[in-house]
């Protein structure tokens, strides 16, 4: 009794006819390259313009020269920003908020998704839909009631959360938790039922089933959710604009806008530099986790 696969040597060798697939496929490829190039140009022009502007002095920016060319490149904008305490404070606040929000989100939504996907309890299906519906309520609708809630909370308890960077740790999860829970429900649901039954028979508790089977198996989904939570908290603008005002409490997107625009004077060079530097962390994270992220996004489509 052998356990190795048998190779049928008599089977005809397959010859690929290049011709037959050529015409349609070649044109399809040409069109996709055309549109992809077009889209890439469209998407990359703004960052390119930001980069060009960030290398110019204020004088050159306001001079009537070719805006797409740098005649006297300078790193002064970068030096100024990176040596300014203010900018570093924004950066630190952003980083703290994002890291904590990602952690809080994952700690809530992974167990929540596991419970909603696997532990059949009364109303679990309705609850799962409810979680998703909360994500559909736009933040422009939520920020006033939320603000009011924090004010009332402050009056009742004396704990002032408004205008503290850590208020965002409570506010951002209202965006990230529903969405991350929802995608994690999807990933967990795609794991065959027999896998947790096997784990239960093997003697695993619910918690062990989650940590030792579900999380490793759904890792691509977990990473996709993490990236999402990070991106949302890093780039969020409306909530920090509303909930924080003092310069030492601001996060990067709001900080750049409020401190580098003085009245009607726009420090374009520094604004662009700040935006570019601000965009760097998500970019680096994407670059490292891109493969996982794409695998995660398409997992549902390819799993048999």
């Amino acid at each position: 009794m052998t356990s190795s696969a048998v190779i049928d040597k008599s089977a005809p060798t397959r010859t690929v006819k290049l011709r037959s697939m050529s015409r349609d496929r070649t044109w399809a490829l040409r069109w996709s390259y055309f549109f992809l190039t077009l889209f890439a140009i469209f998407a990359l022009i703004p960052p390119l313009y930001m980069l060009i502007t960030s290398l110019k002095t204020s004088a050159e920016i306001s001079a009537a020269t070719n805006p797409w060319w740098v005649y006297h490149p300078t790193l002064s904008n970068y030096v100024e920003l990176l040596t300014s305490n203010q900018f570093l404070t924004f950066f630190r606040n952003s980083a703290l908020v994002s890291i904590f929000v990602v952690t809080i989100t994952m700690l809530i939504s992974v167990p929540a998704a596991f419970a909603l996907a696997r532990m059949r309890f009364w109303g679990s299906a309705t609850l799962a839909t409810g979680v998703f519906l909360t994500y559909l309520i736009p933040e422009t609708l939520l920020f006033l009631p939320l603000f009011k809630m924090f004010v009332v909370f402050g009056e009742l308890t004396g704990i002032q959360l408004i205008n503290k960077w850590y208020v965002l740790l409570i506010v951002y999860p209202t965006l990230t938790v529903p969405f991350c829970t929802w995608i994690m429900i999807g990933y967990f649901a795609s794991i065959p039922k027999e896998l947790d039954e096997a784990a239960i028979i093997d003697g695993a508790t619910w918690f062990q089933t989650l940590t030792r089977i579900f999380i490793p198996v759904a890792l691509p989904g977990l990473i996709a959710a993490t990236i999402f939570a990070f991106t949302v908290s890093w780039a969020q603008f409306l909530y920090p604009l509303v909930f924080t005002t003092s310069t030492d409490q601001l996060v990067l997107p709001v900080g750049i806008i409020t401190t580098l625009i003085k009245g009607d004077v726009f420090a374009w060079g520094q604004i662009m530099t700040g935006a570019l530097l601000g965009a760097a962390p998500p970019l680096i994270i994407y670059a490292f986790l891109m493969d996982y992220y794409i695998a995660g996004l398409t997992a549902g489509a390819t799993k048999g």
Partner: peptide
């Protein structure tokens, strides 16, 4: 104190 073998094997893929 039982062990079960499933139709789709249910092996832990990782």
């Amino acid at each position: 104190d039982i062990a079960m073998v499933f139709q789709n094997y249910a092996l832990y893929p990782h």
